[in-house]
Simulated assay, not measured.
Amino acid sequence: MQLPQIRMNSQMAQIQIQQTNGKQYIKQPKADLFIQQPQADISINTTPSRLTIDQTQAWEDMGLMHISKRIKQFANEGKQGLFEGIARKAQQGNELMEIENQGSPIPRQAAQNSFEGMKSLAIEFIPSHFAVKTSFQPSEVDINVKVNKPIIEARVNKPTHQYEKGAVDTSMKQYQSLEIDVVNLFTESV
């Protein structure tokens, strides 16, 4: 004997999920940098050195002098010789006035007037020491330096940001189903 049977076949529903990940791009560009170093400003002022050489006395020591100076020298020598002659004549006149006191002044004065005095023998340097006079004024250097600061310009660039959204797609992979079969519902007679 066969009993009736109910057969059930079910299938569960299935969901399909498909996911796309989001993407993010971040890029930081380098900063724009401009640096300039101006040269320093330098000014140099120089006063030239000065050397002065005076040879006047050296030329005069050698007997080479300007004519006006030579005339003045001769005039002074003549004046001095005149005064010396006047002094000598006055002294000799006084001696002759007092001839009785000093003995015989005439032979002595004759010997004195007839011979010039003895010349001294000495080494004389021509031109004399330090006859050439020099003076030196050194040059002066004035240096002015002005330092210029560097010029720095910086521009910051913003980061670039790019974003692609992610996605989630859901769909039915399989729908639910239920099948019911009845087996041996009707019995057959034998």
Score class of each variant (00 low, 15 high):
residue 157 N to Y: 10
residue 60 E to Q: 14
residue 75 A to K: 10
residue 18 Q to F: 03
residue 21 N to H: 10
residue 127 P to C: 00
residue 21 N to Q: 15
residue 4 P to T: 11
residue 186 F to G: 01
residue 91 Q to D: 13
residue 168 V to P: 08
residue 131 A to Y: 00
residue 94 N to D: 14
residue 144 N to Y: 08
residue 9 N to I: 14
residue 40 A to W: 08
residue 122 A to W: 00
residue 82 L to T: 11
residue 118 M to S: 06
residue 17 I to C: 15
residue 6 I to L: 14
residue 17 I to F: 15
residue 8 M to D: 01
residue 69 K to Q: 11
residue 186 F to L: 08
residue 39 Q to G: 04
residue 8 M to F: 11
residue 186 F to S: 07
residue 5 Q to N: 13
residue 106 I to G: 02
residue 100 E to D: 09
residue 85 G to Y: 12
residue 77 E to F: 05
residue 176 Q to H: 15
residue 53 I to G: 02
residue 97 M to H: 10
residue 133 K to C: 01
residue 95 E to N: 10
residue 28 Q to M: 10
residue 123 I to P: 01
residue 177 S to K: 14
residue 46 T to G: 03
residue 30 K to W: 15
residue 129 H to K: 08
residue 35 I to C: 09
residue 143 I to L: 09
residue 186 F to A: 06
residue 149 K to I: 03
residue 133 K to F: 03
residue 39 Q to A: 05
residue 190 V to H: 14
residue 150 P to T: 05
residue 56 T to Q: 12
residue 111 A to C: 00
residue 173 K to N: 07
residue 36 Q to R: 13
residue 153 E to R: 13
residue 39 Q to S: 06
residue 46 T to C: 04
residue 156 V to G: 03
residue 178 L to E: 11
residue 167 A to Y: 13
residue 3 L to G: 14
residue 56 T to Y: 12
residue 60 E to A: 14
residue 164 E to F: 01
residue 59 W to I: 03
residue 57 Q to L: 06
residue 150 P to C: 11
residue 36 Q to W: 08
residue 105 P to G: 04
residue 36 Q to F: 12
residue 180 I to T: 07
residue 32 D to L: 15
residue 42 I to A: 05
residue 2 Q to N: 09
residue 164 E to C: 00
residue 37 Q to H: 05
residue 106 I to D: 04
residue 162 Q to A: 03
residue 155 R to C: 00
residue 89 K to G: 06
residue 152 I to M: 12
residue 104 S to Y: 09
residue 42 I to R: 09
residue 54 D to V: 03
residue 30 K to I: 15
residue 98 E to D: 08
residue 31 A to W: 08
residue 104 S to D: 15
residue 39 Q to L: 01
residue 166 G to L: 08
residue 140 E to A: 10
residue 102 Q to W: 13
residue 32 D to M: 11
residue 16 Q to T: 09
residue 76 N to D: 12
residue 162 Q to Y: 05
residue 57 Q to A: 08
residue 17 I to W: 14
residue 40 A to T: 12
residue 111 A to M: 01
residue 116 E to R: 04
residue 33 L to H: 10
residue 129 H to Q: 04
residue 3 L to I: 13
residue 51 L to A: 03
residue 60 E to Y: 07
residue 87 A to E: 15
residue 85 G to C: 14
residue 16 Q to G: 12
residue 94 N to W: 13
residue 121 L to K: 02
residue 185 L to P: 07
residue 185 L to R: 15
residue 101 N to G: 01
residue 77 E to A: 12
residue 118 M to R: 06
residue 52 T to E: 02
residue 130 F to Y: 02
residue 123 I to C: 00
residue 137 Q to M: 03
residue 26 I to R: 05
residue 47 T to P: 01
residue 162 Q to C: 01
residue 62 M to R: 07
